[in-house]
């Protein structure tokens, strides 16, 4: 897995490069927009992590240039501004995800991983399977082994997202954003409540747990006994 990091702030760039390197990614660093765009246009990457404000060419300009040249590499945009409207602007320009600085490394890792594993667009998926857990997206039903699991709509959405990203650490912020469209952290433990409800329902028949809590980071859905990847 090869990742391009475009970031002008040396401390942040090294922090990201070191962290992702320890995760086993090959990291290329570009310190300004021009170099970043050059690298992105000429070499294959699995994920691009780009700052939004850059000397040379800014993050949005790079993004537009990439998309205009038909390069669909997933881009995670970093920004010092956490405003919603800026976020929308970035997503509209073709960013696949958006992360506000400063961020916990676990958050960045979770998002990079989600982007790197994003399957190429394929035929409509109608069923998701993780271990003995099956989700029928057409009938909106979930079964564990052969036991039917009754889920509320919001719980269904949560489980669907987790099943689309099995074995990955999903942070609370990521879940809030992707499942409920909350671009902020509520003071109440909204995510924990919903996850623990889904978890209880998945284990109601005495099955082994599938959702693990990663302390200080978030949650992982994986087949029982599987090591998180």
């Amino acid at each position: 897995m090869r990742i391009l990091v475009i970031e002008d702030d040396a401390a942040t760039a090294d922090y990201i490069a070191k962290g992702l390197g320890e995760e086993g990614y090959v990291v290329d660093l570009a310190r300004n927009g021009r170099d970043g765009l050059y690298l992105a246009l000429n070499e294959p990457f699995d994920v691009i992590v780009s700052d939004r404000m850059l000397p040379g060419a800014d993050g949005l300009a790079i993004l537009r240039a990439l998309r205009a040249s038909g390069i669909t590499t997933p881009v995670l945009m970093l920004t010092a501004l956490s405003e919603v409207d800026r976020r929308v602007e970035g997503l509209e320009a073709g960013a696949d995800d958006y992360l506000a600085k400063p961020f916990a490394f676990a958050e960045l890792r979770a998002r990079v991983r989600a982007l790197a594993r994003r399957p190429a667009p394929q035929a409509e998926v109608t069923e998701l399977t993780v271990g003995d857990l099956r989700m029928d997206l057409l009938r909106r039903t979930v079964t564990r082994a052969s036991r039917a699991v009754e889920l509320l709509p919001t719980e269904f959405r949560l489980l669907e997202f987790m099943m689309r990203h099995p074995g990955q650490v999903l942070t609370r912020t990521l879940l809030l954003e992707k499942v409920w469209d909350f671009s902020f952290d509520p003071t109440t433990n909204v995510v924990d409540v919903h996850v623990s409800r889904v978890r209880r329902k998945l284990e109601a028949g005495g099955e082994p747990p599938m959702i693990r809590t990663v302390r200080g980071a978030g949650y992982i859905l994986a087949p029982p006994g599987a090591e998180p990847g």
Partner: peptide, 12 residues
């Protein structure tokens, strides 16, 4: 939608 998200939190 938001009420649906918060109802379980209240219940808990």
């Amino acid at each position: 939608g938001v009420a649906e998200v918060y109802a379980p939190v209240a219940e808990e």
